[in-house]
């Protein structure tokens, strides 16, 4: 969905890392990823759960990775409350328990229905309670000043059931084919950033610290 207020669609100052193992979605109207998602934390766990998922007292309060969807989206995708869903982006896919709740409901923007998916942050592969990590999904886009990753708004695909394997773009390349026409100079998928990530050091150049230790 295009921003109706500005011609420029994406933050021109953002940092991006454009390489084959770091693919991006189209910034608007990507039919492969029709739902919008956000990430957040719940009170029961701390940051990515690396510390709190070792505590049975906290694990019993939030025992498993879950995603929250509205009853409408659950109906659309055949998701069952307490069952499994697989959420994917072009970077990775995760499985999670489904929590159907009326707290989320579809937005209507420019006459179009937009379904939302809520994804808590707290799971990963170590601890007494383990689960897939939300960071497998989020795009590598960062702010230009302190390189904080933008992880609060992105688009996803949701299907019912568990994932077959934990596929990652970093290991197998983009998880979805590019949109037809998008590659051959068709409609642009995103405004290009004007600032890019810092260029990797040319081969052979040593960092300042290395040099210092060698001199010493």
């Amino acid at each position: 969905m295009k921003n109706p207020l500005y011609g420029q669609q994406c933050n021109p100052a953002r940092l991006e890392w454009i390489r084959r193992d770091n693919p991006y979605h189209k910034a608007w109207g990507d039919p492969r990823y029709p739902f919008i998602a956000t990430t957040y934390r719940v009170t029961e766990h701390h940051t990515a759960g690396g510390m709190s998922r070792w505590l049975p007292w906290l694990n019993e309060l939030q025992p498993e990775m879950f995603v929250e969807v509205s009853p409408e989206l659950a109906g659309l995708r055949g998701l069952e409350n307490g069952g499994w869903a697989t959420v994917s982006t072009i970077r990775g896919e995760i499985e999670a328990r489904v929590l159907v709740t009326e707290r989320l409901h579809p937005l209507v923007v420019q006459g179009q229905v937009l379904h939302q998916v809520g994804i808590p942050y707290h799971w990963s592969y170590v601890g007494r309670s383990t689960g897939d990590a939300a960071n497998e999904l989020t795009a590598f886009v960062a702010d230009p000043n302190v390189s904080i990753e933008e992880s609060k708004a992105f688009s996803v695909q949701v299907v019912a059931g568990r994932r077959a394997s934990r596929r990652r773009a970093a290991a197998v390349g983009p998880l979805a084919e590019p949109e037809p026409g998008q590659e051959q100079g068709g409609e642009p998928s995103r405004d290009l950033p004007q600032v890019q990530a810092k260029k990797p050091a040319p081969h052979g150049e040593r960092s300042g610290r290395q040099q210092q230790t060698e001199e010493a």
Binding site: P56, W57, N59, E60, L61, F66, G82, R97, L99, S129
Partner: peptide
């Protein structure tokens, strides 16, 4: 914590955020 009670086990209820 104060009463040193054990956890009841991890069970995802699907009933809002109430899992106990």
């Amino acid at each position: 914590q104060w009463n040193q009670l054990p956890a009841d086990g991890a069970y995802f209820s699907g009933r809002s955020y109430d899992n106990t």
